[in-house]
Design a protein around this nucleic acid. Structure first.
Lengths: 334, 334
DNA sequence: GTGAAAGCGCTAACAT
DNA sequence: ATGTTAGCGCTTTCAC
């Protein structure tokens, strides 16, 4: 492996000149530049990034903490992250945390270990423990998708409460009075916000929310299926079910079909996220579209800004959602 | 930020002793060890990984080249990679290449730039150009999922030809004689192998493959939908359609439904991959199950072995597939 | 068992 | 415009 010294010898210049030619070409004379570049080429020289990063204390690596990479929504977010990171010349260190705090904490530590410049956290958890900070400030971090209530860092989120309210109002407008809700995992602010929006809409319509119509899920197809089972067994069955993501809605639809009921004629079903499969379900799913890739893109932009001390246009971005009405929801028949 | 020197001072030892305590604890005396560890704790010391890697010429980073992270199958593969990498103490540098060779080449170069120890390529393309190798041998690389015919590195693959043959035989056994095939993108060995398996089965059954029953797709829902449109317009319509992945099968099913036909009564549809959605379609999809996570796990194991010069049990792993028969395929009615 | 010291490849301050 | 040189934080001989 050739190094900068070998190139310097070949070009008959000093290592400093080689370094300058590569970093700030306009500061060396055209003909030395040419000679150096020729030597670089001849030697097949590639700067040792380890040395560069070590020396300059910048890695251009970003740690991305993703709760579940197999989740279609997060896969889209990561696409956006990847795209922007590449454009900025940053690399992505991916960690599929499965929501395990110790894994998140461990990976976040890579910033302290000078292995990465910052962290993008896609879950509502601060991976930097007070204790491990040793009095230093919070390293560059951005919290996107599911954000902490009092995030100590920039955030990119959706108005989940308003979105859930919009969906519930859509169902109410179709005449549904008993609307089941399949929630996400406990303790998640995202889920809490969506429940609040759902209840807002009901109360505004003069309907007192019935806690027995809420079922817990975990954003998987299976959990949607299981929760729907519970809802179908309810003595006073709902006429519509709002699921907190599309996977659970798809699971629920299958369960409803298996019970010999039709969607939407007997039960309306709505999802959240608008994953690609939502449009290809039978029936196509009414859902809330989120700009998944944009979460990722903005997260990178903000993180780079924070880590390079550039001005941040706004610390808390809220991205728009869209109610997408397809065929899985219809007017209630009496 | 504290460094090894500060810890050495605190403990009243030399930096060498601190380094030894951390790397090879059993070579220092118990009570120095204790003092050093206490100092490490007190200083909140974390080794600078940049320096460690620079010095030891090992990064424990792996570059993963994935054609499309939003593809559910690859998301599962990455899960497996992530899991094993973590277990081995390696980190994953993810690159969503979208099949662009220049991006793959650029990321693979990170190995030469000492930013990663090896590359896992999930597509049939060698990102190390002869020219850029400058006479050096191929860096540690493993090729999984879709593998090169004459891969210059270890591979993990599926017997795609046998799998496609098994699926086609299943359809033949149901009485289907005209079987459409929705292929993947041009030039992919994986697609070529699956076409070969499909043709093997037909010929064995005494049926000459009809090229007009082959349609090109690109593994997306949309492309399955579009290809099905073409197949439905065929003057002598197929009674079954075999799709080279589940997404295209789901797209095709929707198109068939929109044409007023039923699956499987009018047309049988089969997929490939057994993604989670396959079991939750309507009707549930007959498909070929692949151990997606295992591709990732084995890829990491093999790459680590190659990069650490450990013996490799076998250079070309072939993982098993399974024909999963669900409700989207049925006997042809005449 | 421990310390002194060289040096990994590069950048940047300073000198020319 | 270019060269000289110190040093980033760590590991690893080589002495003792």
């Amino acid at each position: 492996m050739s190094n900068i010294r070998k190139v310097a010898e070949l070009a008959g210049v000093s290592v400093a000149t080689v370094s300058r030619t590569l970093k700030t070409p306009d500061v060396v004379s055209p003909d030395t530049r040419e000679r150096v570049l020729a030597a670089v080429d001849k030697a097949g020289y590639r700067p040792n990034l380890m040395a560069v990063q070590f020396r300059s204390r910048k890695t251009r690596n970003l740690v991305v903490l993703v709760p579940a990479i197999a989740n279609v929504f997060f896969a889209r977010v990561i696409s956006g992250i990847q795209e922007k990171a590449q454009a900025f010349g940053y690399r992505v260190l991916l960690c599929n945390t499965l929501g395990r705090e110790e894994v998140e904490t461990e990976y976040a530590e890579l910033v302290h270990a000078h292995q990465a410049d910052g962290v993008i956290q896609l879950r509502a958890f601060n991976p930097f423990q007070e204790a491990s900070l040793h009095g230093e400030g919070l390293p560059p971090m951005v919290n996107a998708c599911e954000v902490l209530d009092d995030a100590p860092c920039p955030t990119i989120s959706l108005d989940n409460r308003a979105a859930a309210r919009a969906m519930t109002e859509h169902l109410l407008s179709l005449g549904h009075q008993r609307i089941g809700l399949i929630k996400g995992p406990q303790g998640s602010p995202l889920t809490r916000e969506r429940i609040a929006g759902y209840e807002d809409a009901l109360r505004c319509a003069g309907i007192e929310p019935d806690p027995s119509l809420l079922c817990r899920g975990n954003f998987s197809l299976q959990s949607g299926y299981a929760a729907a089972t519970a809802l179908l067994e309810h003595p006073d069955r709902p006429t519509a079910i709002f699921c907190e993501n599309d996977e659970m809605a798809i699971g629920a639809i299958q369960r409803i079909r298996q019970a010999g009921l039709r969607v939407p004629q007997d039960i309306s079903v709505a999802g959240f996220d608008d994953i690609s499969f939502a449009a290809y379900c039978d029936p196509p799913l009414t859902t809330i579209a989120q700009p998944a890739e944009d979460f990722g893109r903005h997260a990178v932009e903000m993180l780079v800004a924070v880590s390079e001390n550039l001005p941040l246009p706004s610390r808390h971005l809220v991205l728009p959602f869209e109610l997408v009405i397809r065929a899985s929801t219809a007017a209630v028949v009496r």
